[in-house]
């Protein structure tokens, strides 16, 4: 079992408190200066409790990595522009396949190498791949030659690992490397 470290605790606390403010709908009031103090104080207590229990699962290393504004803006840009573009493209493609009378699918499980090293980067890449319809990450394997992802692909475009990787990951991997490495 991992131990809870202080930086991990603090950054989990901050994230929990931000989500508390968002969910209780206090954000507009905070900026206008009329937030109810009892809600803000209750949020601090709940966040401390949540952070004490979950920090060791949530953060393992480099606790303040994402608090850098450049990285935050890159993350936001990635989520809103780059990822949305891929998402809409893939959604249209899979919807077309599902609705066309011949059902043109050519499924297969491909093995794709990735250059990402950090756990956060890998989980973000595999989540992005799973979220785009048409590809599901089934497993991540650490081998001596590097890290590989096993991906179920609804329309195998190429059996070669490198080419398949380029087609599935597109520009996503480079953006994630910029954020997490």
């Amino acid at each position: 079992m991992r131990k809870t470290t202080l930086p991990a605790f603090i950054s989990t606390l901050v994230v929990c408190y931000i989500f508390w403010l968002l969910i209780t709908g206090q954000i507009p009031a905070v900026f206008k200066g009329g937030a109810a103090p009892q809600i803000l104080i209750a949020g601090v207590l709940v966040s401390i409790l949540a952070a004490a229990f979950t920090a060791r699962f949530f953060i393992h290393s480099r606790a303040f990595h994402l608090f850098n504004p450049v990285r935050l803006i890159t993350l936001l840009f990635y989520c809103v522009i780059i990822f949305m573009k891929e998402l809409i493209k893939a959604n249209i493609d899979v919807a077309k396949r599902a609705l066309s009378p011949k059902l043109p699918v050519k499924p297969g499980i491909v093995k794709v190498p990735t250059e990402l090293k950090s756990d956060y980067g890998l989980s973000m890449l595999s989540n992005s791949i799973t979220l785009t319809p048409g590809t599901i990450t089934m497993d991540v394997a650490d081998e001596e030659g590097g890290t590989n992802l096993y991906i179920h692909w609804i329309d195998v475009g190429s059996e070669d690992p490198k080419e398949a990787g380029d087609q599935i990951k597109g520009t996503m991997e480079n953006w994630i490397r910029r954020i997490f490495e």
């Binding site: 050519k106 297969g108 499980i109 195998v156 059996e159």
Partner: peptide, 8 residues
């Protein structure tokens, strides 16, 4: 219809 299964 599956053409390849690297995982298996």
């Amino acid at each position: 219809k599956t053409i390849m299964d690297k995982y298996g």
